[in-house]
Design a protein around this nucleic acid. Structure first.
Length: 218
DNA sequence: CGTCCAGGTCTAC
DNA sequence: GGTAGACCTGGACGC
């Protein structure tokens, strides 16, 4: 559970930074915990399943993966499939059964690469000495993972330097901000948070998820 | 029933 | 190195 909620991560430096920002000071009360998955592989698969689709489709695809390839636990529930299980079925399975469309090739290639040792992604969450740029490069090398996916996965790994810019965060920022802003402008707005740039952006966007917090203009 | 598009990525200029 | 086009699917729309 500590892993899932990432409770061991030290965010004190970030809290000190937001204390000086009127629009983010609320976050110093202990926000910034990201839900993690047990494995980086699972997070990567789910991330691929979020790209260029509505959330309902993401849920549909992930459920299909779990139901068809996940090992049944003693409780009767299916676990998330292992890379081995996902590599053992052909790409056609992802098209025809999971209905993952063009993501099918990505999913199969990712699983196969992990099994073959080509992508050693489970280590990425542990190597604190490796700079964010290298972590990003490793993630961008994964099939179906681009700038959005890499930023998303890095947040889950406790690497908060990247902004998650996508069709949800861009308009959400514009709404809160009061007017549209280009990616570069958003980058500048949160630049002062340094290695917590992405986290500051994320909390700015999700402030209305926090119960009992008065949101300006709502 | 056709068009559009949703928490993008890849490839080819 | 930046930028169009293609890309699966299914649900939400307009007609």
């Amino acid at each position: 559970m500590r892993l899932i909620l990432n409770l061991d991560e030290d965010l004190s430096e970030f809290y000190a930074l937001v204390a000086n920002d009127p629009e983010l000071s609320w976050a110093a009360a202990g926000s910034g915990r990201m839900l993690r998955t047990p494995t980086v592989f699972e997070a990567a698969v789910k991330t691929i399943c979020t790209t260029n689709v509505a959330w309902s489709a993401t849920v549909r695809m992930v459920n299909a993966l779990v139901d068809n390839l996940g090992e049944r636990a003693a409780s009767g529930a299916h676990a998330f499939p292992t890379a081995e299980a996902m590599a053992s079925v052909p790409e056609s399975f992802y098209r025809e059964t999971v209905r993952a469309g063009y993501r099918s090739a990505y999913l199969h290639a990712l699983a196969s690469g992990v099994v073959a040792g080509e992508f050693e992604i489970e280590e990425l969450g542990l190597q604190a000495d490796v700079p964010d740029d290298e972590i990003a490069s490793r993630l961008l090398a994964l099939p179906g993972i681009g700038p959005y996916g890499a930023a998303h996965l890095m947040m889950l790994l406790g690497r908060h330097s990247r902004l998650i810019l996508d069709s949800w965060t861009r308009p959400k920022y514009a709404k809160i901000n009061g007017r549209k802003a280009g990616d570069a402008a958003v980058q500048r707005r949160f630049r002062r948070y340094g290695r917590y740039t992405g986290l500051a952006f994320w909390l700015y966007l999700t402030r209305d998820w926090v119960p009992d917090e008065p949101v300006p203009g709502s």
